[in-house]
Design a protein around this nucleic acid. Structure first.
Length: 265
DNA sequence: GACGTCAATAGGAGGT
DNA sequence: ACCTCCTATTGACGTC
């Protein structure tokens, strides 16, 4: 029984994981609320290990490392001509200077100013950013500036860190939701399989015993001890019909109705 | 060398 | 027009 079969039963898989609109998500984020991420069931990446909380084990580079400089030089060389980026750079120039360690500027720029080197945040910087993220998943400009000063980073770097952090959080939550949905799907599949089997049994029973199955359900009774079926009490109070047959299969569908043993017992 | 991580970029959407 | 945010992607770097 596959997914198609499930679909044909009209079953609907719903966990009630409402996806907030983008605007709503942003609003919630601004309010510092935990927001439900949009739920995208993508099995291809479902098993990707989550690394969100993993503390970087390789903080070998501090802000004063040569890589820091290279990252910054890359920013200027890779920046688009967009107004915003230019504004960012111009307004952050002072902080660029504070972050930049230019001792190796010349020798590494020689072979290509476009080379983008990777900046590694220090443990202290990461810890402070994490702490701040716990309080607010988004930052207003003042908070961003203050945090950047505190971390000796450019505001743009703080902003990027928060963006990436939100993305990782969302990815992690999506993976969790995916696992929940998979479990739910398995449960529903099992339930559907069981119900299909029960339906088949009932159909087989109907073919074998058309007499009983054609009678209104309310008129049938089955003795809970011997499982013999008999018609319910007649309207005129006559003795219920004794049955020569017995139910071949127990079904919980009937179990609620046979409270009275048949007269056959 | 494949792979994972993550800082950074690009581009689009929506709000003001 | 400009801003912030999201998403996809890139590229450097570390690890196995």
């Amino acid at each position: 029984m596959g997914i198609d079969d499930m679909c044909s039963t009209g079953l609907v898989l719903s966990l009630g994981l409402e996806t907030p609109s983008k605007i709503e998500a942003q609003r919630q984020a601004k309010q510092g609320l935990d927001l439900e991420p949009s739920l995208t069931l993508c099995l291809s990446g479902a098993n990707r290990a989550t690394c969100d909380e993993r503390p970087p084990a390789d903080h070998l580079y501090c802000q004063a490392s040569p890589h820091s400089h290279n990252s910054l030089s890359a920013v200027s060389s890779f920046s688009s001509p967009r107004v915003k980026r230019e504004r960012d750079l111009s307004s952050e120039e002072a902080e660029v200077e504070t972050t930049r360690v230019s001792s190796k500027a010349s020798d590494e720029d020689d072979d290509g100013a476009n080379a983008r080197k990777k900046l590694r945040l220090t443990k202290e910087q990461s810890a402070l950013l994490e702490e701040s993220f716990k309080q607010h998943s988004t930052l207003n400009p003042k908070q961003k500036q203050a945090l950047a000063r505190q971390l000796n980073l450019r505001p743009r770097q703080v902003e990027v860190w928060f963006q990436n952090r939100r993305a990782r959080t969302k990815l992690k939550q999506t993976e969790v939701d995916c696992e929940i949905l998979k479990k739910c799907c398995e449960t529903l599949t099992d339930e559907n399989r069981r119900l299909q089997k029960e339906l088949q049994d009932l159909k087989a029973l109907k073919l074998a015993q058309p007499f009983y199955m054609h009678m209104p359900a309310a008129t049938l009774t089955m003795c809970p001890s011997c499982e013999r079926i008999g018609a319910g009490p007649s309207v005129d109070g006559a003795t219920p019909t004794k049955s020569p047959f017995s139910m071949g299969a127990k079904s919980h569908l009937y179990s609620h109705h046979f409270t009275n043993p048949s007269a056959a017992c």
